[in-house]
């Protein structure tokens, strides 16, 4: 934790934009460079920056380790669940054509697009929470001697 005022103020100013950029990369990943892996890492680096400047307890009250632990598994569950859903809808595992629907397809993603959206969301959740959890594990350890 640092008490240097410039760092604290600049960090507070920057973090909203880092998080916003992470969500942009996540949801715009189908159209430009980006996707779940990148968005997850950027979101986690926003949280890590907060933790570095304001201390571990501060960031752990924003993102409690218990929640992060569950999110780690939830991401993979979303990914695999999309695969199971396509099986239940009559397709093959992770064959997103089964997700085709006729409910305003011009406004809501459909078919392959919907599948990719769900899968990237799963990847994003897992990568964010794993990177944050790894940081917690290292930062929570006290220095020996």
């Amino acid at each position: 934790m640092t008490t240097f005022p410039i760092i604290r103020v600049v960090t507070k100013l920057l973090i909203p934009y880092i998080l916003l950029f992470a969500f942009y990369v996540q949801f715009h990943g189908d159209f430009g460079p980006g996707g779940g892996f990148q968005a997850g890492v950027i979101l986690a680096s926003g949280l890590i920056l907060y933790g570095l400047v304001f201390g571990l307890p501060a960031v752990q009250s924003v993102a409690p380790p218990r929640t992060i632990e569950r999110l780690m598994a939830l991401g993979v569950l979303i990914y695999a669940g999309t695969g199971i859903a396509t099986i239940l809808l009559g397709g093959k595992f992770l064959d997103y054509s089964a997700l085709e629907h006729n409910f305003y397809p011009h406004y809501f993603p459909s078919g392959q697009h919907l599948g990719i959206f769900l899968v990237e969301a799963g990847v994003g959740v897992t990568v964010t929470s794993v990177m944050t959890m790894i940081f917690y594990a290292f930062a929570g350890r006290n220095s020996v001697e």
């Binding site: 159209f31 996707g35 780690m72 990914y79 990719i116 990237e120 990847v123």
Partner: peptide, 27 residues
């Protein structure tokens, strides 16, 4: 259906099994 980023399309759809495996490795 016109997804501009081919990298994302391959990553999440054509090679979906592979990415599932990679996500599991990260976990």
């Amino acid at each position: 259906h016109g997804l501009p980023n081919v990298v994302t399309a391959i990553l999440a759809s054509y090679r979906g099994y592979d990415t599932l495996g990679e996500t599991t490795v990260v976990l």
